[in-house]
Nucleic acid binder design. Sequence first.
DNA 1: GATGAATGAGCTTTCATTCAT
DNA 2: AATGAATGAAAGCTCATTCAT
Lengths: 177, 177, 177, 177
Amino acid sequence: MAAATRAIASQGLGAPTAVIAKEAGVSNGSLFVYFDTKAALLNELYVALKTEMATTSLVGLPSGGEPREQMLHVWTQWMRWAMASPEKRRALAQLLVSDDITAASHQAVNTAFGAMADLLERSRANGPMQDAPLSFVLTLTNAIAETTIDTVIREPADAETLTRVAFDAVWRIIAGI
Amino acid sequence: MAAATRAIASQGLGAPTAVIAKEAGVSNGSLFVYFDTKAALLNELYVALKTEMATTSLVGLPSGGEPREQMLHVWTQWMRWAMASPEKRRALAQLLVSDDITAASHQAVNTAFGAMADLLERSRANGPMQDAPLSFVLTLTNAIAETTIDTVIREPADAETLTRVAFDAVWRIIAGI
Amino acid sequence: MAAATRAIASQGLGAPTAVIAKEAGVSNGSLFVYFDTKAALLNELYVALKTEMATTSLVGLPSGGEPREQMLHVWTQWMRWAMASPEKRRALAQLLVSDDITAASHQAVNTAFGAMADLLERSRANGPMQDAPLSFVLTLTNAIAETTIDTVIREPADAETLTRVAFDAVWRIIAGI
Amino acid sequence: MAAATRAIASQGLGAPTAVIAKEAGVSNGSLFVYFDTKAALLNELYVALKTEMATTSLVGLPSGGEPREQMLHVWTQWMRWAMASPEKRRALAQLLVSDDITAASHQAVNTAFGAMADLLERSRANGPMQDAPLSFVLTLTNAIAETTIDTVIREPADAETLTRVAFDAVWRIIAGI
DNA sequence: GATGAATGAGCTTTCATTCAT
DNA sequence: AATGAATGAAAGCTCATTCAT
């Protein structure tokens, strides 16, 4: 998994399985003992990274707090995770656009984002997005996060400010204030 | 160009040049009479599609109007173009993440988006994003547009509503109201 | 012919016919109006260059002189031609090893070398090579000339000396003195 | 290596890698497991053949003998090797003029020819070629050998005689007698 | 289970040659 | 006669996957 992350981060989705295997310190053939196909590996990696991202972002969520406070907490940890794991982030960016990622994998990820969806649901109550499909709101939030992360990675100097500005934007979208 | 759009939309960036050529009704070799490499073809297609998108969105811009009114005009046409050209839109989504797209191509596209950047600059004046890098605001707007388009393509029934909701969100982000 | 010489000298036998045509300032297709195939062009060029070389070397041959004197005359002009026409020489070196050169072309060249063969015949009379096939003696002389030319082109400083040393060697081979 | 020799001898340097692989009884792709590129294969073959030729020619060299005796020994074995391995000889003739052969390969070959160069150096002492560059003498000897081999292969009947006549010629060139 | 050599389908690119204009 | 766009066969090389050991 870690080897695949590194290989894909540096070489893209076209990274040969041979490279991934060598990076992992195992033989060429061993890779296929654990993954039936390259696509299977990619799917597993996708789910693992996305899940890790969601889990990390949701850890320590103040259970009784206000939605905004909770959302800020999640957002901050989300950004922190991305900043701390540029390779995972880069690999994820590639995986996001791969044709090999199956609907099942997307579904699995959605599950991991369940808690975040709940939070979004609570956050948008009475807001301007209350009637939109929740999946749309989730995707939108995600897109803004990705964009912010990309920008922040490119110019880490303004990380703090930009992260805050972006959060305000998200909140304005969802809650309308 | 059209053939490449179709081929890439249906088979992804990995679409063989032979398929593109056949789709265009010319021979394998003829393709390389007009494009030195496959990468050159992809770049040209990228610039063409992006430019078409920008141009179409900006056409008939009410020159003297309010920023919000102008922005809405652009947004509407942007969505309409995307809805009307699902294949171009799908091809573009693939090209956006291709490693083959050169900095020069991105630059060429930026030029085509100049008018839109201007509009954004005026729109955000005195708003909450007035101090963020303009490129960030542009990228953000773009990301929201892409997300909206993706959703709308998947569920065309709610197109009208969703398009409007999304625009309001964008405006809230930029202008803060 | 001149264009082909330049193209082959710089790009080798693999020089595309398109390059030769452009070098000649004519269109792609025009080349095939005058030469049925690329091989035909190569053959014609081979014969032309070899013939020019032989003719130039034999020009002004002192008719009544001693064989050695005549041979030296030929040798000197041969070297001079090669030094003065490095591109022709380089093209010729390539053509010499081409599979495309037909037996007919080799025959045609042999004819052009008739006078030189005569001279060699007279030169070797009573010498140690009097019983060897004349064609062998001719080929041998040629090989030594080519080697000398190649060396001289690589280090033009010692041209005079080397040319003389090589001639003495040739004469020693043929006449035995 | 043997397969490449056969393929190149019969089809020239343009012999497809697919043909070489099939000749070797392995698959297309396997060839590239052992040779990074076709050029790498050619280089390796060139060095192998040249080295074999040098080694074979130098084997059993009478250590204490006269230069002429030693030279004759080498010459005889050289010719014998060439006669016995017409395919290797033919492949070598092609490789000699290939642009793909690197300077490193030529260097490697030169090393293998070191003993022969030594022998030539001793042979030409006090002779008419004592002041010429040794490399020129070596190249010249080589050229005469190649020419002789070519002729002998074409007319094997006179092999013995021609080989002897050619050796005398070489010796006359080098030692002057 | 682990290995890594072997595989061969598949891809991009080149170029001699043709032929309608 | 001259043109040059069109052609398509052919070539080198890559890589996911298999399988005997």
